[in-house]
């Protein structure tokens, strides 16, 4: 579904990474680790078409990103649920409307979708009518996850989804991701959280990749 081949990226200075291959297939579960500043977030942005590789090919659902216009990228993004590291919302809209935003912009009504169930599941029922700036860090991350999965996308990409939440909540997030993965969705999570990785490996076949010294390699068996 998402394929990277010989990909390199540079923000203008030196290359952050090069000769990078990655393939997200239905039902695959990947973790991406690596030191801060290694380029994990950058790599994820390549995967959902926000950045375009400086070398190599990125294909989203079979189409080369370089040949896609913005409208096609927008359509591809509806099939990819993304939890961003900095969780950006529309600060003037209540949380519930923010979570329903992917439905709204793709012209679907949020009526009949299980937005209430989803809000309850991420524990935000009480906050539904609050504005995003009024949420705690962990609540923001849960809202971001709810927004990422509301379209039941084929691929779920999460950047540090458990950065601000407690262990119990991160277990619930993981359980949701595992459940979605079992439904055949590809999952890619960038994280520093080794306990999260270990917990996941107990439940699914997860591959752990490490971005280090400009290369993407499989992590050691200790993970």
């Amino acid at each position: 579904m998402i394929e990277l081949e010989n990909v390199a990226y540079s923000y203008g200075g030196g290359e952050l990474f090069s000769d990078l291959d990655l393939s997200l297939q239905p039902g695959s579960f990947h973790f991406l680790t690596g030191p801060s500043g290694a380029g994990k977030t950058t790599l994820l942005k390549l995967c959902y078409g926000e950045l375009v590789a400086t070398a190599g090919d990125v294909r989203l659902f079979g189409d080369d990103v370089r040949g896609m216009d913005r409208d096609k990228v927008a359509l591809a993004r509806r099939r990819i649920g993304v939890v961003h590291q900095d969780c950006r919302f529309l600060d003037h809209l209540p949380v519930a409307e923010n979570i329903a935003l992917p439905l709204t912009v793709s012209g679907r009504s949020s009526e009949g979708s299980d937005i209430d169930d989803l809000m309850a599941w991420v524990g935000l029922t009480r906050q539904a009518d609050q504005l995003p700036p009024e949420l705690s860090g962990g609540e923001r991350q849960r809202a971001a996850l709810a927004r990422a999965v509301i379209m039941s996308p084929e691929v779920i990409i999460a950047d540090e989804p458990t950065g601000n939440i407690d262990w119990e909540m991160s277990q619930r997030l993981l359980a949701l991701l595992v459940e979605l993965n079992r439904m055949g969705k590809a999952v890619l999570i960038a994280t520093h959280d080794l306990t999260l990785i270990r917990a996941a490996k107990a439940q699914v076949q997860a591959r752990v990749l490490r971005l280090k010294d400009r290369r993407l390699v499989a992590a050691g068996a200790d993970l």
């Binding site: 926000e50 913005r70 359509l75 993004r77 950006r88 529309l90 912009v105 379209m151």
Partner: peptide
């Protein structure tokens, strides 16, 4: 600008 960026991230097309 910020609003436009968020809308794009969730898959909004320019025309929308």
């Amino acid at each position: 600008e910020q609003v436009i960026r968020v809308l794009r991230l969730v898959g909004a097309q320019d025309s929308y």
